[in-house]
Nucleic acid binder design. Structure first.
Length: 293
DNA sequence: GTATGTACCTGTTTGC
DNA sequence: TGCAAACAGGTACATA
């Protein structure tokens, strides 16, 4: 489950190891990860071969390799995606979906897109080297120097949606997933269903600050997790050895007040929160998840 | 434009 | 032991 800090680690690793290399061959082993490319698997491959990687950029959880012809290879890791830089003789991964052979600096390598559940994907963005049109609607993320804090606060405070829904809305703020949303809300003592328009400026600014703290801590840890041989996002490790206060802690005592952390169904997934520190707004029925306990 | 619900996908875990 | 259902959740898309 890569979130923004993991994607940034991938971006930085790709930048270090692939800029200057040329895409020599492309092999699509499963059509689904290239489903968003209107050219189809063969056209996808043809649009990449022979082009040089000039930069690696990111917005939210999307990243792209900017090519010398002005196009871009746009990628998203989805739920379970990995982008691995491997020697060509390394055995294929079980869920290898797309293979890109690279020629040139620093050495010949394979860039492998591995994705078990295939929520992620790759596509060629025509003219997308600076910013792919496909993701122009994605807001900047809070690690972006050009992130507009005041605009974020205004957007939240004019909305009648719940605050967690707003945090997960990529047109409002990008890069925040379910885990970090729960963690930031716990730190800010805000319930997921507090209405944006009923929060004070100060509350929204504080929440934004906590989002940055959570991401910053993860980035500091993730930044040391890959070595020179491969660029790796591991969907298993990383999260759970990180200090989480809310996510996944159902029934365990709140680190602040000791009350048992609760889990409720929310948007087809789970929300974890402290029922004492994060009081629900009036009129919110507390739906239990479908499973017993 | 805004708000909300759902399909997509598969390995693992849980329940009967 | 074996099968079925639940579960994980980011995004695009449909609908109101």
């Amino acid at each position: 489950m890569p979130e923004l800090p993991e994607v940034e680690v991938v971006r930085a690793g790709l930048e270090e190891h692939t800029v200057g290399a040329t895409i020599a061959a492309v092999e699509v082993l499963h059509p689904r990860p290239v489903r968003r490319d209107p050219r189809g698997p063969q056209g996808f491959a043809a649009a990449l071969i022979g082009h040089r990687i000039e930069a690696v950029r990111r917005r939210g959880k999307y990243f792209w390799l900017a090519l010398e012809d002005g196009d871009a290879l746009l990628g998203h890791l989805g739920m379970s995606g990995q982008f691995l830089l491997q020697p060509p003789d390394a055995p294929d991964e079980r869920h290898l979906r797309v293979r890109l052979r690279l020629a040139g600096a620093p050495t010949d390598r394979e860039l492998r897109f591995v994705d078990q559940r295939m929520f992620g994907g790759l596509s060629v963005s025509e003219g997308g080297a600076e910013l792919p049109a496909e993701i122009a609607h994605i807001a900047r993320d809070p690690l972006d120097l050009a992130f507009d804090e005041d605009a974020f606060v205004r957007r939240v405070r004019r909305s009648d949606s719940g605050i967690k829904r707003l945090l997960l809305d990529q047109t409002v703020i990008s890069g925040v997933g379910n885990i970090y949303a729960d963690e930031a809300l716990w730190r800010s003592r805000l319930h997921a269903e507090r209405i944006g328009s009923r929060l004070t400026r100060r509350q929204v600014f504080d929440l934004l600050g906590q989002v940055r703290v959570v991401m910053g801590e993860a980035l500091a840890q993730g930044g040391t997790s890959f070595d020179a041989l491969y660029v790796n996002v591991n969907g298993e490790s990383g999260y759970f050895d990180r200090s989480l206060h809310a996510y996944g802690r159902e029934g365990m005592p709140c680190d602040r007040c000791g009350a048992p952390i609760r889990r409720v169904a929310f948007m087809n997934r789970s929300s974890y929160f402290c029922p004492v520190c994060q009081r629900p707004p009036r009129g919110i029925r507390r739906k239990r998840p479908t499973s017993p306990n």
